[in-house]
């Protein structure tokens, strides 16, 4: 069984980090994982995206044209990748920045205003953690406690921002389960 999650948004929205944290937690849970970035000029402020592959066996092709799920943090990302998601997958929409919805009838849509929630938690910079938590809660790909622990580890060098991100995480989970 293999699952692929595409994270997409503006450069600077923390897309690569969200994806890495999901991969890291899945690895800790015993899965094979791969974190596959797009790289190049789009790293400099344009649309950034990357794909996490989670599998129970050796991962073959790192070229993922149609992911199982999409986490879209801005409108261009949704418009670009909406069509590519496999039927039955989750299309996660950052409703703070995306006024439209998925054009698909065969996917599970989850629209959450992650920027607004992050601001409530204390900083818009934690929007990627809100999104990650909400998506993880909905998809159940990894254990939520483990994922939260991984986030804590990631920020170990900056202990001041751990409480903010923990709060953002809880709010993200709550929003998905509401």
């Amino acid at each position: 069984m293999q699952t692929e999650v595409k994270f997409a948004g503006f450069g600077g929205q923390g897309i690569l980090l969200s994806a890495k944290l999901l991969a890291y937690a899945a690895m800790k849970q015993g899965y094979q994982v791969a974190w596959i970035p797009s790289y190049g000029p789009e790293m400099r402020g344009g649309t950034a995206y990357c794909t996490v592959v989670i599998s129970d066996k050796l991962i073959g092709s790192p070229i993922i044209k149609s992911p199982s799920h999409l986490v879209a943090m801005n409108r261009p990302s949704l418009e670009k990748f909406d069509d590519t998601v496999k039927p039955g997958g989750i299309v996660f929409i950052n409703a703070s920045l995306i006024p439209v919805r998925s054009q698909r009838k065969d996917v599970v849509e989850l629209a959450i205003p992650v920027n607004d929630i992050a601001i409530e938690a204390g900083s818009v910079r934690a929007a990627n953690i809100v999104a990650l938590a909400a998506f993880a809660a909905k998809s159940k790909l990894v254990d939520l406690d483990l994922l939260k622990k991984c986030i804590k580890e990631e920020f170990a060098a900056k202990p001041k921002i751990i409480p903010l991100n923990m709060d953002a995480f809880d709010r993200g989970v709550a929003a998905a389960q509401a």
């Binding site: 890495k20 991969a23 690895m27 094979q32 994982v33 791969a34 974190w35 596959i36 970035p37 790289y39 991962i59 790192p62």
Partner: peptide, 10 residues
């Protein structure tokens, strides 16, 4: 190749 350099794996 660029893929092996840029991707993360365990």
């Amino acid at each position: 190749d660029g893929m092996i350099g840029q991707m993360m794996e365990p």
